[in-house]
């Protein structure tokens, strides 16, 4: 078994795929360098993240599969699932070795798996578009914290940019410790570091805009008033809105 180590980024992974083909590795395990546990008998191959190599793989794939299918691979990658590289590599090998487009061959194990994982990530992307809750600070910034299971921040950037075009906002992924910021019409990814053990990521109440408490109160009141007690169905509520998202939602948890 040949271990192939890359830097954990999407480009890094695509460059790894390039190397797998370039070195004609067959029995191979691609994994991020920081997750590598060591193999007994062989030296790992370390991938240099070369954007040119990555782009050649991406372009080669687009000769075989549609842009939608290629976007699915990226979504899948962002799932962060253990051994996701194995599934992606199996899919890519099948796609590159086949004549007609295989993206609709749901009877192939890698294709159905990629489809299902991509769907799972898409579902959380859609949930984040729904469950992000901004809090307005005194200097006019709308600030939100999320802790998604998957790394969906890159996937929701466009939605929030289009929607809140005239607004300064920041969405911070507290699990992965980076954020998405929108200022003057452009979005950018930013590193935000809080001191170890500090709660400052969560506790922004001391910098609230004067109206923030009122609107949180009104929102809670609204959620109470539109509920129909005679139809109570907590199971259904949790099914649609799993508890792990409640922490940052003022109407129910946060």
């Amino acid at each position: 078994m040949q271990a192939v180590l890359y830097d954990g980024s999407w480009y890094g992974f695509m460059a790894a795929v390039f190397d797998v083909y370039d070195y004609r590795f067959t029995d191979v395990s691609v994994c991020p360098a920081d997750r590598f546990n060591g193999h007994l008998f062989s030296e790992p191959h370390r991938v240099y993240t070369d954007e040119k190599k990555a782009k050649r793989v991406a372009a080669g794939l687009l000769n075989k599969i549609s842009e939608d299918a290629s976007a699915q691979l990226y979504r899948c990658f962002l799932s962060g699932d253990a051994a996701i590289e194995e599934t992606l590599l199996a899919y890519i090998r099948y796609a590159l070795s086949s004549g007609p487009s295989v993206e609709s061959d749901f009877s192939h194990p890698a294709v159905i798996k990629v489809t299902q994982i991509a769907k799972k990530v898409w579902r959380e992307q859609h949930r984040m578009e729904a469950f992000v809750r901004f809090q307005k600070t005194a200097d006019g910034l709308f600030y939100a914290i999320i802790e998604p299971d998957h790394d969906v921040l890159p996937l929701i950037a466009k939605h929030f940019k289009n929607r809140y075009a005239d607004q300064r906002w920041l969405i911070y992924d507290a699990r992965r410790r980076y954020g998405l910021s929108h200022e003057d019409g452009g979005v950018s990814f930013i590193e935000v570091s809080f001191a170890e053990g500090s709660t400052s990521a969560r506790d922004v109440a001391h910098v609230y805009d004067a109206s923030e408490d009122l609107y949180q109160k009104l929102w809670k009141q609204y959620m109470t008033s539109v509920n129909i007690a005679a139809r109570k169905n907590l199971r259904l509520q949790v099914q649609h809105m799993p508890r792990r998202y409640w922490k940052y939602m003022p109407e129910i948890g946060g």
Binding site: H126, V226, N227, L236, Q237, H240
Partner: peptide, 14 residues
Amino acid sequence: MGICHAYTEDGRCV
């Protein structure tokens, strides 16, 4: 696509 932003205790979408 529509978005359901929250759910009340009766399980209905808001």
